[in-house]
Design a protein around this nucleic acid. Structure first.
Length: 281
DNA sequence: GCGACAG
DNA sequence: ATCTTGTCGC
């Protein structure tokens, strides 16, 4: 699929201030509300293959299948996006799933122009991600991007940047909190399926203090153990509300901490990384 | 000056 | 993110 907002394509040659200004523009263009035709309940992420009839008894709470182009009886296409690095090169891998099964897989390798700078991640990895999306034959109904979305200093994390540039519904899935304050402590064992709101604080300069910008989501938890799994940090990227973002991630969970699309993209990125590592001579 | 910060 | 063996637990 192709870029829709070319003015937002990440440019690593911009100054830090220009990058931040661009992020403010992106945040203003971003839609942190549901504008998609995906019913989370119709996403099968339990790893048991195609959904059975009994798995599809949900109502189309968000208008699933009401638009042209996507058959109402077809489960949504969910993409997982992840990056890996080899020397100064970024590897972006995308795995596309439908009903829990891989239907397409692509990757791209691009030079990483700038170092990692908290808050400017998309300018380091964005080019590779867009190149991978360009190679993707089908158009996903939604994409899960590793990293933050709205949970960002200027509400324009990598998931938001990519989503707005492609005008594609996206969700940010991070393993750590970049900014914002959890409504309650995350330093305790949360039950599987639990969600804890993340609110904007002084570090989020573009949002009103207290605004819910995402959630900590417990996709997996130990039952009979003193040990516990930390929650994932989920936030809207573009055209998705915080509630739906969490719904989609939980719907894609299949017994692992990472939702299937992201987990498989992570594996694929590692495979590609090994191959690229040799071509370096 | 100190703290704090996705991947 | 990346460099890395074994090891504890379900």
């Amino acid at each position: 699929m192709e870029v829709v907002r070319s003015e937002f394509v990440p440019d690593a040659s911009l100054s830090r201030e220009e990058m931040e200004d661009l992020q403010r523009e992106i945040a203003e263009t971003a839609v942190f509300a549901d504008d998609l035709h995906v019913d989370p309940a119709r996403i099968c992420g339990d790893g048991d293959g195609p959904a059975t009839d009994t798995d599809q008894t949900s109502l189309d709470a968000v208008g699933a299948g009401e638009r042209d182009g996507t058959p109402a009886d077809d489960p949504p296409l969910v993409a997982g996006v992840d990056q890996a690095f080899v020397d100064d090169h970024a590897v972006s891998a995308i795995v596309l799933l439908r009903d829990g099964e891989v239907v397409e897989r692509v990757h791209a390798v691009e030079p990483a122009e700038i170092p990692y700078i908290p808050g400017l991640l998309s300018f380091r990895e964005g080019t590779a991600i867009l190149a991978a999306f360009d190679a993707l034959e089908r158009e996903p109904d939604i994409a899960l991007v590793d990293g933050s979305g709205r949970i960002h200093f200027r509400e324009a994390g990598i998931a938001t940047h990519v989503g707005v540039t492609l005008d594609l519904p996206t969700v940010g899935v991070a393993k750590n909190l970049l900014c914002g304050t959890p409504r309650e402590s995350l330093d305790r064992k949360l039950p599987q399926g639990a969600r804890v709101a993340i609110e904007a604080d002084a570090d989020v300069e573009t949002a009103e203090h207290g605004t819910r910008i995402g959630d900590a989501v417990q996709t997996r938890q130990f039952e009979n153990s003193d040990r516990y799994v930390n929650p994932l940090i989920v936030s809207p990227g573009h055209r998705v509300s915080a509630d739906t973002a969490a719904d989609v991630v939980l719907a894609c969970a299949a017994g692992y901490k990472l939702p299937e699309p992201t987990r498989l993209a992570d594996q694929y990125a590692d495979d590609v990384k090994s191959e690229v590592r040799e071509e370096l001579d």
